[in-house]
Design a protein around this nucleic acid. Structure first.
Lengths: 224, 224
DNA sequence: TTAAATAATACTGTATACATTGTTTCTCTT
DNA sequence: AAGAGAAACAATGTATACAGTATTATTTAA
């Protein structure tokens, strides 16, 4: 029995590069590191109390997530996205969201559907309570459940990567009250399509959903 | 005038990590390194005549391309894809190819269209000459031209990454004579759709094209 | 005062040494 | 002989040192 005494968390070990990666990623996504800011290995290493090696590796990971830009012999800087980039990402996400939703219409098990419904119910409750943090989280959960049901890891991975890239520009989005009713309508439409196993309808609604998102994000960029 | 003497190639400099990356990537794609094979940093460093540092960085780049798998404190090995993985990739590629083609139908300039036509003509000539290497290259060119015309770097990047992952399983594909006529028909269908700016038709034909690819690749896997 | 050249500096690129952990092998015990 | 345990080994994780290059500052000349 005592052999479990020290097995609090069997995988508490995380390589430093992952710790650094998570730290920097979080800093970028929350805006503590702003686009264009230079990321110098020595400076970061000192600040984080590690050597340059894990910092270098973390920077390269961030580069592959398109969060930082690496120029050989020059260094890294937080990547600044143009409006064009955002449009491009949304265009791809549109296609993938439609794909995911239509697969979900075909494949989703009843159990998962019930879960999805309950997430949506919670979402609408959070809306009433104007709990912005929770609204954002539950919207993410809703889409994650759909992705999961596709049983397609590649799709999930690519989609989530796109989401991360948009994260910085998305924060403001769900905070605006006026957009919420439309989002709820979309979610309900998606639920209905899944319930009816209507893949075509699902893709259509998802497309409309993203299109709405797209327009909103673009508008919020322009108003800055 | 003599200042140009040594400026043969103004960006001949490539960081060692990129050299190693290209070398390993090529070795994996051509099958010199087979799935499951362990990739040990010291061993690779010795063999390539560099230190472990660039090798490590190259391995991490390969991991992000899903060509190798990294297990913390265990090491790297050439990633073996299951049939499920291949199906997943093809599913995503299908959606992206349809997206790319339909955008191309809307956006492609006449100049690019003429280029596309000439690539297709060359492709069909290569088919007649049974020049397999050239067939493969031109098929890639055909799809690259379509991607380019979307003016969407993200889409292009993601699509090409998927292509790399399939590369190993794709080689055999275009070597089989029986599949070629269908591919030519698809290409011509895509050309027609672009010419008529018929985005819907383009997406449909592209979808059929990938579906055909998919079935073929799966059949060739099963017959192994 | 400004522009060009040169020197100083600060950063990335690469190698290497040390630390830690996982694996294998050998030995000892039952 | 088989299994458990310990020790030797081998690989990755991390730190650091040195090399090379880009940038900045400074000085000199026009």
């Amino acid at each position: 029995m005592e052999e479990t005494k020290f097995v609090i968390n069997s995988n508490e070990y995380l390589p430093l590069r992952d710790v650094v990666f998570n730290t920097l990623r979080d800093a970028i996504l929350t805006g503590k590191l702003v686009p264009g800011e230079r990321l110098m290995e020595n400076q970061l290493a000192d600040k984080l109390g590690v050597s340059r090696t894990p910092v270098r590796e973390a920077l390269r990971m961030l580069a592959l997530e398109n969060l930082v830009e690496l120029v050989p012999r020059k260094g890294a800087q937080v990547l600044d996205m143009s409006e064009k980039d955002i449009i491009n990402i949304l265009e791809v996400r549109d296609a993938l969201e439609s794909l995911a939703t239509s697969i979900a219409c075909e494949k989703m098990k009843n159990e998962a559907l019930q879960q999805l419904k309950s997430v949506e119910a919670e979402f609408e409750r959070a809306v009433e309570e104007r709990d912005v943090e929770r609204i954002i989280q539950l919207d993410e959960d809703f889409h994650d459940l759909i992705l999961e049901s596709t049983e397609n890891d590649k799709l999930t991975q690519i989609y989530q990567n796109l989401r991360v890239q948009l994260y910085r520009y998305r924060m403001a989005h769900l905070k605006v009250d006026s957009t919420i009713p439309a989002i709820i309508a979309h979610h309900r439409g998606i639920l209905r399509a899944i319930e009816n196993h209507d893949a075509e309808e699902g893709a259509t609604v998802a497309h409309g959903h993203i299109k709405y998102h797209t327009e909103f994000i673009l508008r919020s960029i322009h108003s800055k």
